[in-house]
């Protein structure tokens, strides 16, 4: 009886991180896939409505209204990807898990700007800022929570 209990305990100690990682891989993966899907449909819906870093206004049309617009998002990695990133830190190289996270965050931030003014025609002078705002688990090596801030001037032409 006691042996059985000890065995279960030992197994838990060794298997728990693996189980957690597996769970995070499945759930985190599902969430990411759903998010990307939503981003793609919304981007397609806003395809006529660009956000550009230049001041590219259509010379043939008269500007009716221009406003500052900002949107931000704070993101963090799931447990599984955090393990990958931690191992990556030893060997160096491209960190795919962060790339997908930051790509998602940026596209989401730009979409949020557009969604604030869905009737406008474009966003000019757009800037994107990424900053680490802290570590999620309080450890020095922990994955940072990252804020992506998008700013720009939203422009609506006179009809």
């Amino acid at each position: 009886m006691e042996e059985d209990f000890n065995l279960v305990l030992v197994l838990l100690i060794y298997a728990l991180p693996v189980l957690l990682a597996l769970m995070a891989f499945v759930i985190g993966g599902l969430i990411e896939r759903a998010h990307f899907k939503s981003i793609r449909t919304r981007e397609a819906a806003f395809a006529h409505y660009p956000a550009v870093p230049t001041c590219s206004l259509d010379g043939d049309r008269v500007v009716g209204e221009a406003r500052l617009v900002t949107a931000s998002i704070v993101v963090s990695l799931d447990y599984f990807k955090r393990i990958l990133a931690a191992f990556r830190n030893v060997f160096g190289g491209r960190v795919r898990s962060y790339e997908s996270l930051l790509d998602r965050a940026k596209r989401e931030a730009i979409l949020r700007m557009k969604e604030q003014y869905p009737e406008a025609d474009l966003i000019v002078n757009m800037r994107i800022n990424t900053s680490q705002i802290g570590t999620t688990d309080g450890r020095k090596k922990g994955m940072g929570a990252v804020e992506v801030l998008a700013t720009g001037t939203v422009v609506r032409y006179q009809s």
């Binding site: 660009p50 956000a51 550009v52 830190n89 160096g92 491209r94 962060y98 790339e99 730009i110």
Partner: peptide, 14 residues
């Protein structure tokens, strides 16, 4: 113009 183009990459030091 055709809108925004961008590229990103994340690198770790070894």
């Amino acid at each position: 113009h055709y809108g925004l183009v961008s590229g990103n990459t994340v690198r770790a030091k070894n």
